[in-house]
């Protein structure tokens, strides 16, 4: 009797699901073209890369299954990787944190100006992302006594000898963070700008009537809860961006940086994937980086749901 019942309900369930699928056929039609491209050109490569992470693969010979060997090596025999994890955590927590706050603050402040000024200010803050001219910072922080900062500090008598900003382990982390913050107001920032444009001004008037006293309260109780979707987007792109820092460090500090002081997970990944042709190992690094990002993102998303409470 009971098995019969279960069968019934299972059958009913399938019928119900089939009905629902048919009812939402328009939705599937909307999703289909993008999904097809996504599955072929984004998802499939990712799946293959995850498979490679369990193999030994040098691109030229076929991949050889070695199970968890790559991961074991990463954790037990690769001291540089551990340094890279530590550096990436430090760099990305500082850069993502500050940059995310700046995205919100600037989006908010800029929103109060007149439309023309708003366009100009948005341009000003987004410009570094349009043109990544890191070489300008190399001139400013140049290690010889003619570099802008060195020359100035020496003239003031603060220092007597030129500082090697990008190679001295005492300064490089700070200088790298400074320069990367400058170019970090990209995707997340523009989306916050667009988000603020989308807030209904009637909400503010209603808030003023309800006893909201100043701009801070208005921000916390009205704007931020409304902008939660944009905040989540900004957080995700800022976090993924800062965890993927690598190329910029090559340009600024050289490859590898002194004592691996600024060596990130991405540097490590590119080293194995690009230079040493150990694709399997590089894929294992990518998988760990992915897990790290997923973990950090889920924590941040949880925190964001508490806004405005």
């Amino acid at each position: 009797m009971s098995t019969f019942m279960q069968k019934q309900t299972w059958k009913q369930k399938t019928a119900y699901t089939a009905k629902r699928i048919w009812r939402f056929r328009a939705s599937y039609a909307f999703v289909a073209p993008f999904l097809l491209i996504f599955l072929t050109f984004t998802f499939l490569p990712v799946a293959i890369a995850i498979f490679y992470s369990f193999t030994q693969f040098n691109v030229l010979e076929p991949a050889k299954w070695i199970g968890l060997e790559n991961f074991k090596n990463l954790f037990l025999n690769d001291a540089v990787f551990m340094t890279a994890v530590k550096n990436t955590m430090v760099l990305s927590v500082v850069i993502a944190g500050v940059s995310f706050l700046l995205c919100i603050l600037l989006g908010w402040f800029i929103n109060d100006f007149s439309p023309r000024v708003r366009t100009i200010l948005t341009f000003l803050f987004y410009a570094p992302s349009l043109a990544n001219v890191y070489y300008v910072w190399q001139l400013i922080f140049s290690g010889d006594s003619n570099g802008f900062i060195n020359a100035y500090l020496m003239k003031l008598g603060v220092i007597t000898e030129a500082i090697q900003w990008f190679t001295d382990t005492r300064y490089m982390t700070g200088v790298v963070i400074f320069v990367l913050l400058w170019s970090s107001l990209g995707t997340g920032f523009l989306v916050m700008i667009a988000g603020f444009q989308n807030v209904d001004t009637a909400l503010y008037e209603a808030g003023a009537i309800d006893g909201i006293k100043n701009r801070w309260q208005e921000m916390w109780f009205i704007t931020l809860p409304y902008l939660r979707p944009q905040l989540m987007f900004s957080a995700v792109t800022t976090i993924t961006g800062s965890f993927s820092i690598g190329g910029a460090i090559d340009i600024l500090c050289g490859n590898p940086s002194t004592d691996y002081q600024a060596w990130t997970i991405m540097n490590h990944l590119n080293d194995y994937g690009g230079t040493r042709f150990e694709m399997g190992y590089a894929c294992a690094i990518a998988v760990l980086l992915f897990l790290l990002m997923v973990g950090v993102n889920s924590i941040v998303q949880k925190m964001l749901t508490k806004i405005g409470d």
């Binding site: 490569p45 990944l269 990518a286 992915f290």
Partner: peptide, 11 residues
């Protein structure tokens, strides 16, 4: 979105 593009170029 969070998977590094650096290793997917070969696949």
């Amino acid at each position: 979105l969070m998977f590094s593009g650096a290793v997917t170029s070969i696949p």
